[in-house]
Simulated assay, not measured.
Amino acid sequence: MPYTILVTGANRGIGYEAVKLLSQEKPDATILLGSRTTQNGQAAIEKMKTSSPSSDFSNVKVVELDITSSSSLSSAVDLIKSTYSTLDVLINNSGIAELDGDGLSPAIFDVNVRGTKNTIEAFTPILTPKSGIVVFVSSQVGGWYTKAVGPKIQAELLDVQSTTWEKVEGWMADWQKMAEGGKAQGDWVPLDQGMTGSMYFVSKALINPWVRKYAVDHSDARVAIVCPGYCATGMTKFAAPREASMGGASIAWPVLNEFESGKFYQDGKELGFDTGVPK
């Protein structure tokens, strides 16, 4: 069976660039381009062919996938299992910073936190035993947020062994209470602290411990947490110093190189999970 790689949220931005790169670097592999609609996925492939006419991208196939839909996840798993038997690499790239301009939309937690958990758990049963790779696209901003919170919450976020999904749900509910002006138990970063207090930052800080615990509990798979960097994509309104292709290369790096499971990387270099905002 062919080597199979699935990239979620891949019809544009960093995911698109990762698919494009992996298609060229691993021509014998099948690269599955996850997209919420088949039409958008096919349009992405046509864009690749136009931008790089020397490659035909015939090894790229569209998989319709919405990570917030359990039925969509189930259908995608069934399709990949019946067609390819196993999945060698899952790159969970889907994520949002806002919804329709709302930086406090519940959809941010639904996609970035719950969607990540549900996607990784859905595909775990079909990962190739002993050699399967899970790449979770996080962000260095999660480390910035973890560094900025109060000591009690910070200790909880870094206590990987004690992390449970129930704790993650509790953190989200407590943060939401703070965001709505209520009295929270945790010493969260206030919303008025610029971007550091944002829901996007906290979403990455809250899902990182769960993915790290997943890596501990699933020693049969190799797990890389990666940061693409601050790239010029639709999410950043194209106002960022790094090209999207650099982000794509960063999240594809664990597929092409050796790495230590459970660690955090950007451009192949290890990051910390509680590093302060660069001066």
Rank of each mutant, 00 (worst) to 15 (best):
G268E: 00
W253V: 00
G262L: 03
G272E: 14
S58K: 13
M235L: 15
M235E: 02
E270K: 13
Y145A: 12
Y145C: 10
G262S: 04
W165H: 12
G34M: 11
K81L: 06
K26D: 02
L206A: 12
F201V: 05
F57W: 05
G115V: 00
P106H: 05
S85L: 03
K26T: 02
G101K: 06
S52W: 09
E169Q: 12
T68P: 12
K130N: 13
M48F: 06
L104N: 15
A184I: 11
D217A: 07
V60N: 09
V226A: 00
S75R: 14
S94R: 03
M172L: 15
W188P: 12
T275L: 08
E46Y: 10
R114N: 06
I108P: 11
S71M: 11
P106C: 00
D187E: 14
G150L: 02
K204W: 05
I45G: 03
Y16N: 12
V137M: 06
R114F: 14
G194R: 09
T30Y: 08
T146Q: 06
A221D: 04
H218S: 02
I120V: 15
R242N: 14
S54P: 04
S51Y: 03
V149I: 12
G34K: 11
D100H: 13
S75A: 15
E180T: 08
Q39V: 15
R114V: 07
E166T: 02
P209I: 07
N92M: 07
F123Q: 13
A10N: 05
D66I: 08
S162R: 12
A97C: 10
K152W: 01
T163I: 14
F238D: 07
T8S: 13
A10Q: 01
P228W: 01
A252W: 03
A215D: 09
Y230F: 15
G194I: 02
L157Q: 00
V135S: 09
L90V: 02
F109Q: 00
D102F: 08
I120Y: 01
L32G: 03
K147H: 15
T128V: 13
S54W: 01
F123Y: 14
G142M: 04
V60C: 08
G115N: 05
L127F: 08
K117M: 11
M235A: 04
A107V: 12
G15S: 04
D66H: 14
I207T: 06
T233D: 11
E64T: 15
R114G: 00
R114C: 00
V223Q: 01
K81T: 05
M1P: 15
I14R: 07
D88K: 04
L206D: 05
S85W: 01
P241C: 03
V60E: 03
N59D: 08
D187N: 13
L87I: 07
R36W: 13
S94F: 02
P53M: 00
V160H: 01
Y200H: 10
T86G: 04
E64R: 11
K152M: 05
A184D: 10
S245Q: 12
L90A: 01
T124S: 15
M246I: 00
Q154T: 11
A107I: 12
T275W: 04
L158N: 14
A97Y: 07
G194Q: 03
F123A: 07
W210Q: 10
E156A: 12
T233N: 13
Y230W: 15
S35V: 06
S261Q: 06
S74M: 10
V216D: 10
L127T: 03
S219A: 04
T83C: 02
D217C: 06
V60I: 14
N93T: 08
